[in-house]
């Protein structure tokens, strides 16, 4: 039985000490898995990611219940840089690159001060192997990149920080489908070759379930459904509510589910 890299148990997050944003979210991310968190706007996806990365205090939000364990250690309500030091790196939804720095400079800042020249060289070749387009854009200002290029740069910068767990907030937002497909393929490759675990927050279920191994669907601050990606894709409710495949019946919320047994795979 392999231990989960990230384990969240009954997580409750409150904003401004009053409004609860997460009402007890539990999820697990196994090492080197790609896990997706799906759900509509306001479901709590980004809040979950922020709670993991430690940047939650900025929104005047706090973990008020439950726990987040990373490699066995509890990390909730800790300052962000300790989480980065542990190997949890976030690709944020907005402001993901330094717009007035060139691509090279963006990548350069991610280098750890302690990395040797050889290490840096290795990382650079690796990054440019995954994102060859970036190699050509080396001296372009990041602010002038297209959306897809910027996302590539953001992911590359994050990878250069040598993460164990990569958190990606809204991979596909504002990007054309072709670009998104390309990005997801590279993400898979990164997981495959570098062994980085990925936790992906996505509004676009098609995209997410296409690349993930396992998925959690959040609704109103709770996990409404979870399962292996293939199984989730096959579920009629998911198809209707999230994959846009209407079948003449009206879209239903998961809470309407009364006669379907909840799909839960045995936990290992």
């Amino acid at each position: 039985m392999t231990a989960a890299l990230l384990e969240i148990d009954g997580l409750k997050v409150a904003y401004h000490r009053s409004a609860l944003a997460l009402h007890g979210v539990s999820l697990k991310v196994m090492p080197q898995a790609i896990v997706a968190i799906l759900g509509n706007n306001g479901a709590g996806k980004t809040t979950t990611l922020r709670a993991i990365s430690g940047f939650i205090g900025l929104d005047d939000a706090y973990v008020v219940g439950g726990s987040i364990r990373f490699a066995g250690e509890r990390i909730e309500n800790r300052p962000p840089h300790t989480n980065t030091a542990r190997g949890i790196v976030l690709v944020p939804e907005r402001d993901k690159v330094f717009p007035n720095l060139t691509v090279t400079e963006n990548l350069t800042v991610s280098w750890s001060a302690r990395a040797s020249a050889a290490e840096r060289h290795r990382l650079e070749t690796v990054v440019f192997a995954f994102f060859p387009a970036l190699a050509e854009l080396r001296s372009r200002l990041a602010g002038l990149l297209s959306g897809g290029e910027r996302q590539m740069l953001a992911i590359a910068s994050a990878v250069l920080c040598n993460p164990q767990l990569l958190l990606v907030d809204e991979l596909s937002l504002g990007l054309a489908p072709v670009v998104v497909e390309d990005l997801t393929r590279r993400l898979s490759a990164i997981r495959q070759e570098l062994g980085i675990t990925v936790l992906l927050v996505e509004q676009n279920a098609n995209v997410a379930l296409g690349v993930a191994d396992y998925g959690y669907i959040l609704e109103n601050g709770r996990v409404a459904l979870e399962g292996a990606a293939a199984d989730l894709r096959g579920r009629r409710e998911v198809q209707q509510a999230y994959l846009g495949q209407m079948s003449g019946e009206e879209r239903r919320s998961y809470r309407d589910l009364r006669h379907e047994p909840p799909l839960e795979l045995p936990r290992e």
Binding site: P99, L101, V109
Partner: peptide, 16 residues
């Protein structure tokens, strides 16, 4: 320059 543009992102990328 990075810290000046986006201190949050700079911190995330390991800049002290």
């Amino acid at each position: 320059r990075a810290a000046g543009q986006n201190p949050l992102l700079a911190e995330q990328r390991g800049i002290r």
